[in-house]
Nucleic acid binder design. Structure first.
Lengths: 240, 240
DNA sequence: GGGGAGAGATGCCGC
DNA sequence: GCGGCATTTCTCCCC
């Protein structure tokens, strides 16, 4: 396949390369994987990242960032920069091949993320409670990465924000911050608040067990699945 | 651009489509994003997944799984199946276009994952300790998803496996299982063991604070970065 | 379908 | 470089 010679030149020229090919793929490094023969899309980017896509699914099936890529016969070999990983693509047929110089100076701007939610709550503290007064945001202190720290009726309040449904790990995160804060600050009473659009039933129970508070809040302007209204605590105590 | 008419036909035919194009991309749904004009790779798969790649980086910049995709003039519009998300690509120029019927009946096989590590430890319990006797693996009981449950000198042992370096959340996971197990089983003494190739310093301190044990172990046959030998506990107590 | 947890997670930011 | 943490996380698996 003389097109593989062109591939060699394009690799040296750091071009953006796209191939539709029948191939098999094997990987060894942080784990091992093998993918038998089939039709795939192979992408080699300007920065020598290599990505393999199957005909379905949003995610790649194999990839390597910033690889050293070489061609040997009909085999493409990619090695990671630290030498501990290896991706091998055996090309059986090339259906389509194109290479280009691609120019893109833009980078994506994202909004509606957790940081934005934090800012919103910081600006609208009454979402937490009528008496809540925020003190600091993203407090990267030795107590941990507290999303929002504030006070309420003379007690410290630690707020943990989640833009999506909260689960067990999120409750534990809050608990860790509260415990550390208590210990290092030497205070007895610290109020823990989890604020999220929804929370899983087990996580809610866990949160209540720890004596923390849940505030339901969906960041405005985000189209998100509406969580079901949460059962009252009594239903947990009586039911099950 | 008459090629956009071909795109319409290919979409109806559920072909695999690859385009190199200058375009801008906006997304709205679980969050919002905007990406100004630049050269991009646009992939539309057999299952109507749509993916946008910039010229560098292993990850896509925008995507949508299983979308409803339509073309209006030079605009590609993808809507999520639940109607809550929208991806809009404004095409300014098409450099390259190809479409194909792609056939791939293979699926990837992966080894060297955590399950394999669990199996290995279960078969070689002396890795944990000379007296450790495993009882069950992946115990999805009401005590939680315990990786390995066993006994040692008449005490229950809960083992949490990590194939990569353990951090704070992993220690908390172990702690949660131990606490639940104690409470629901009504036993006082339960031994907690974290087994991983390495552990972060803060996580190690946290683990020691809780009174648990760390076992350094790298699954065999995996090329993984060698973690530095961990400092002795005394260094933590004396230092800082 | 919900929930928990792993992933070759990746990527970002702060120290 | 390490560490913690969010991610339009995605994916699998079990209940």
């Amino acid at each position: 396949m003389e097109i593989l010679e062109k591939l060699g030149r394009d690799l040296r020229d750091k071009k953006f390369i796209v191939m539709l090919a029948r191939c098999s793929v094997s990987y060894e490094g942080r784990a091992r994987s093998f993918l038998g023969t089939g039709d795939r899309l192979i992408i080699i980017k300007n920065d020598s990242s290599i990505i393999v896509h199957q005909p379905v699914g949003a995610m790649h099936v194999n990839y390597m960032k910033n690889a050293y890529i070489s061609v040997n016969g009909s085999t493409i070999i990619a090695r990671s920069s630290d030498g501990r990983e290896r991706l091998i693509i055996e090309i059986e047929d090339i259906y389509d091949y194109s290479s280009r110089r691609m120019i893109d100076n833009e980078s994506i701007t994202l909004s509606g993320d957790e940081r934005e939610m934090q800012e919103y709550i910081y600006e609208h503290p009454d979402i937490i409670s009528r008496d809540f007064k925020p003190l600091s945001r993203e407090a990267i202190t030795r107590y941990g990465y507290i999303d929002i720290l504030g006070v309420e009726q003379g007690s410290y309040v630690i707020v943990e924000c989640k833009r999506i449904k909260a689960g067990m790990p999120e409750v534990e995160q809050l608990h860790r911050y509260v415990e550390r804060f208590k210990k290092e600050k030497g205070v007895e009473r610290v109020i823990g608040v989890m604020i999220a659009p929804s929370i899983s039933d087990p996580a809610y129970r866990y949160l209540m067990d720890k004596g923390y508070r849940f505030v339901r809040f969906s960041p405005p302007g985000i189209l998100r699945k509406q969580g079901k209204r949460h059962k009252d605590l009594n239903q947990f105590l009586n039911g099950n």
